Measured scan of single mutants.
Amino acid sequence: HNLTITQGKLFFHYNPKLCLSEIHKMEEVSGTKGRQERNDIALKTNGDQASCENELLKFSYIRTSFDKILLRWEPYWPPDFRDLLGFMLFYKEAPYQNVTEFDGQDACGSNSWTVVDIDPPLRSNDPKSQNHPGWLMRGLKPWTQYAIFVKTLVTFSDERRTYGAKSDIIYVQTDATNPSVPLDPISVSNSSSQIILKWKPPSDPNGNITHYLVFWERQAEDSELFELDYCLKGLKLPSRTWSPPFESEDSQKHNQSEYEDSAGECCSCPKTDSQILKELEESSFRKTFEDYLHNVVFVPRKTSSGTGAEDPRPSRKRRSLGDVGNVTVAVPTVAAFPNTSSTSVPTSPEEHRPFEKVVNKESLVISGLRHFTGYRIELQACNQDTPEERCSVAAYVSARTMPEAKADDIVGPVTHEIFENNVVHLMWQEPKEPNGLIVLYEVSYRRYGDEELHLCVSRKHFALERGCRLRGLSPGNYSVRIRATSLAGNGSWTEPTYFYVTDYLDVPSNIA
């Protein structure tokens, strides 16, 4: 807008934040220059609390790290170098490059900038070799853009010569660093050979998330399962459950009422301010606690030095998902009996873990797994792929695949051998790939016309006998059925096997 004052003059007093240069501009645009008398524009009460600059400061050096910015700028000295009290560095987070010096300023003089007072450097006698002032900004957020400017702080001049310097606002972004852990990993099994893994992005990506790394490792069953005799009275049979499938998407929606109208769909109840505040506090606490764990609990591995020492970490090797089922080394339970199943799973520490690289999504279907087997899954978020990966501390989750139908069934015939004193040795093959492992066998036998009897055969007993022995049988026709019990439950009964026990007292003698 054009402003013209045809008559009258300007009068400025007691404006401590208004620089004289701005008042002189007002004289020019209003056409009143030359009308004012000496005392109409006070030299001592206008701009006496402001830094009124008329020179431009330029930054000469900028260096960044993930949490620091090192700045240096060209030296500046007023005509009387004693008038320079120091520099004021202003900075704040700036997602967009549209910041002005006066953003967030209120009537009390406060604003949204963080201000650092910096002492002037030592003055050199040689004007050509003056030290460049600077400042190291610490405690910054990774991968965050900051708006920065600097200006001088000078003393009051009796001659009211307006001098000083100020830089333009520059924008500097800190470097990326390792992201925080992925949030809320959930693993479920939808079949006997697959596990579905879902997660949420890290709360602090500290860069642009480029991919996720998912490692999985087959877990050995508890050692007590191999040692305890679950045929003993009072000892509860062990059981394991597989990871249940995901709930429906509708039930997972946030901010939804727990109660549904019987007449149909209901609208979600909005969260109160107290609920939102509580969630923010919980989120802040979780982030602080995660940072504490990362800094205190997890110790970084030592990389190899120039002395030739090897990095103890196993090298990563990509495998196809079809090879995942046989990740671990199978060892027989008892070496003397080769027909026992290889369900003991000690994992070799030198073995390469299978892994998958996930790009542009937060889910993965891990296939080719062994049925009813526990897996430990390790999830890392990465925001750099080359020249070397920059990934987060791992988040861990466990899951067990679903049982395989008929995996616990005894394959092959049940054979028998009759000894003296009416002892019958029953023999059968253990299931080759049971659900988890076989903890015991149930032997059901009966003599024709009598009630059915049951015998429990422990895992250890089966390994020693290759089956079991029935003792003290009365003469007669017998039928026997056997079924295995694994961590997933009972298998199917075998087809009945028949044998006849004679009275050993009636056996004919070869003595003449």
Score class of each variant (00 low, 15 high):
Ile410Arg: 02
Glu281Met: 04
Pro354Arg: 09
Tyr504Lys: 10
Arg447Ser: 05
Glu378Arg: 05
Ile377Asp: 00
Tyr375Asn: 01
Gln256Asn: 13
Lys236Trp: 07
Ser304Asp: 13
Cys391Tyr: 10
Ser257Phe: 11
Glu404Ile: 07
Gly489Arg: 08
His454Val: 13
Asp222Cys: 08
Ala335Leu: 10
Glu258Val: 04
Asp261Ser: 09
Ala309Asn: 12
Gly308Met: 14
Glu290Cys: 03
Glu389Pro: 11
Asn255Thr: 06
Leu440Ala: 10
Ser363Trp: 09
Arg318Gly: 04
Thr401Arg: 00
Pro300Met: 14
Glu224Arg: 08
Thr307Gly: 09
Val424Thr: 08
Ile209Met: 05
Thr307Ser: 11
Ala330Arg: 15
Tyr445His: 14
Pro245Ser: 12
Gly322Cys: 11
Ser251Gln: 11
Arg400Tyr: 09
Leu455Tyr: 06
Asn383Glu: 01
Arg286Glu: 10
His211Thr: 08
Gly476Tyr: 00
Val324Glu: 02
Leu277His: 11
Arg240Thr: 09
Gly489Asp: 04
Lys317Pro: 06
Gly306Val: 13
Arg471Ala: 08
Ile482Arg: 01
Glu351Asp: 12
Pro387Met: 12
Glu420Gly: 06
Glu282Ile: 05
Gly472Pro: 09
Leu487Asp: 03
Leu235Gln: 06
Leu321His: 07
Ser492Gly: 07
Arg390Trp: 11
Trp428Leu: 00
Asp273Met: 09
Met427His: 15
Tyr498Leu: 02
Asp408Asn: 14
Arg471Tyr: 12
Thr210Leu: 10
Leu455Ala: 13
Pro244Asp: 14
Ser274Met: 15
Ser363Ala: 09
Ala407Leu: 09
Arg481Leu: 13
Gly306Pro: 11
Lys302Ser: 08
Cys266Val: 08
Lys357Trp: 03
Val327Ala: 11
Ser262Asn: 02
Arg286Cys: 10
Leu321Met: 10
Val439Phe: 07
His425Glu: 14
Glu417Ser: 04
Arg286Gln: 09
Thr340Phe: 11
Thr386Leu: 13
Asp204His: 15
Met402Asn: 11
Phe298Ala: 15
Thr415Lys: 06
Ser392Pro: 04
Asn206Tyr: 05
Gln252Glu: 10
Ser398Gly: 02
His425Phe: 08
Asp222Ile: 09
Glu227Trp: 07
Gly207Arg: 02
Pro238Tyr: 08
Gly308Tyr: 00
Ser398Asn: 05
Asp503Gly: 04
Asp503Lys: 15
Ile482Met: 03
Ser342Phe: 15
Ala335Ser: 10
Gly207Lys: 02
Gly489Ser: 07
Asp506Gly: 13
Glu281Ile: 14
Glu282Asp: 01
Val365Thr: 06
Arg318Val: 14
Gly449Ile: 11
Ser315Trp: 09
Asn383His: 05
Ser257Ala: 13
Tyr292Trp: 04
Glu351Val: 14
Val393Glu: 10
His254Pro: 05
Ala220Arg: 06
Thr241Asn: 09
Lys317Met: 07
Met427Cys: 06
Leu232Glu: 12
Ser251Arg: 06
Glu442Phe: 13
Pro338Tyr: 10
Arg400Glu: 14
Phe226Gln: 05
Gly308Trp: 10
Leu426Phe: 04
Asp291Pro: 04
Gln275Ser: 10
Ala405Lys: 14
Asp323Tyr: 15
Phe285Val: 10
Tyr478Asn: 00
Ser363His: 14
Gln256Arg: 10
Val423Leu: 02
Cys468His: 10
Arg471Val: 03
Glu265Asn: 09
Thr303Trp: 03
Tyr498Ser: 13
Leu225Val: 06
Pro332Leu: 12
Val423Ala: 09
Leu453Phe: 08
Leu232Thr: 11
Ser239Asp: 11
Gly412Gln: 05
Val331Asn: 09
Arg301Ser: 11
Tyr212Ser: 06
Val439Thr: 10
Pro270Val: 12
Asn383Tyr: 02
Gln219Tyr: 15
Val423Pro: 02
Pro338Arg: 10
Glu224Trp: 10
Ser305Met: 06
His461Trp: 13
Ala484Arg: 00
Phe226Pro: 11
Val296Glu: 06
Gln256Glu: 07
Pro508Ser: 03
Pro332Asn: 03
Lys287Asp: 03
Cys269Asp: 03
Glu247Gly: 09
Ser257Val: 11
Ile276Asp: 03
Asn383Val: 10
Pro387Arg: 04
Leu225Met: 07
Leu505Gln: 06
Glu465Arg: 04
Asn422Tyr: 11
Pro332Ser: 11
Met427Ile: 13
Gly325Phe: 10
Phe419Lys: 14
Pro338Thr: 09
Phe289Glu: 05
Gly476Glu: 01
Thr373Ser: 11
Pro475Gln: 07
Phe246Arg: 04
Asn326Ile: 10
Asn255Pro: 12
Val424Ile: 00
Lys432Gln: 03
Pro314Arg: 08
Ile438Asn: 05
Val414Ser: 02
Gly472Asn: 10
Ser479Tyr: 09
Leu379Trp: 03
His425Met: 11
Arg481Phe: 03
Thr415Arg: 14
Glu282His: 04
Asp506Ile: 09
Arg400Asp: 06
Val359Arg: 10
Glu362Tyr: 13
Asp229Ile: 08
Thr303Phe: 08
Pro434Gly: 04
Ser458Asp: 08
Tyr504Pro: 05
Asp450Val: 15
Val327Thr: 11
Gln256Tyr: 03
Glu388Met: 06
Ser239Pro: 13
Asp229Ala: 15
Val439Glu: 05
Glu281Lys: 03
Thr210Lys: 00
Asp323Glu: 12
Lys361Pro: 11
Ser283Leu: 14
Thr272Lys: 03
Ile209Asp: 05
Thr494Phe: 01
Glu417Asn: 02
Ser223Phe: 01
Glu260Arg: 14
Lys432Thr: 09
Glu433Pro: 02
Thr272Phe: 05
Glu389Lys: 13
Ser398Tyr: 15
Ala220Gly: 15
Gly472Phe: 09
Arg286Ala: 08
Glu227Asp: 06
Tyr259Phe: 06
Pro354His: 12
Pro403Met: 04
Thr497His: 06
Glu282Lys: 04
Ser305Pro: 12
Val414Ala: 07
Lys271Ile: 14
Val365Ile: 00
Ala381Asp: 01
Glu356Cys: 10
Arg301Asn: 13
Glu227His: 11
Lys233Glu: 09
Met427Trp: 05
Glu452Gly: 14
Tyr292Met: 11
Asn326Gly: 01
Met427Thr: 09
Arg376His: 14
Pro338Cys: 06
Pro338Lys: 06
Val214Phe: 01
Glu420Val: 03
Ala394Asp: 01
Cys468Gly: 02
Leu470Asn: 01
Lys361Leu: 11
Val299Ser: 11
Val331Leu: 11
Thr347Ser: 11
Glu221Ser: 12
Arg481Asn: 04
Lys278Ala: 14
Pro244Gln: 10
Thr373Met: 08
Leu213Thr: 15
